[in-house]
């Protein structure tokens, strides 16, 4: 009776110890987060046309 109890205890403690060896097969994929800082005032104005003009006049001459 006592032997049985010891065997049961050993099996239980063994399975409990081995459960720590389980591997999580979920792959961690990092997604870039959302910007956490204050908004840049530059985002509210668009200089796209002015910059395109500047590029065409200043950097395409030769």
């Amino acid at each position: 009776m006592q032997k049985k109890l010891i065997v049961i205890l050993l099996v239980l403690s063994g399975s409990l110890a081995l459960s720590g060896c389980l591997e999580d097969f979920q792959v961690t994929l990092h997604e870039p987060g959302v910007y956490m800082g204050p908004s840049d005032p530059l985002l509210e104005t668009s200089q796209t046309a002015a910059l395109a003009d500047r590029l065409n006049t200043g950097q395409t001459d030769r």
Binding site: P32, G37, S46
Partner: peptide, 8 residues
């Protein structure tokens, strides 16, 4: 997360 990208 200190990076951001402007509309341009």
């Amino acid at each position: 997360d200190c990076f951001y990208t402007t509309d341009d």
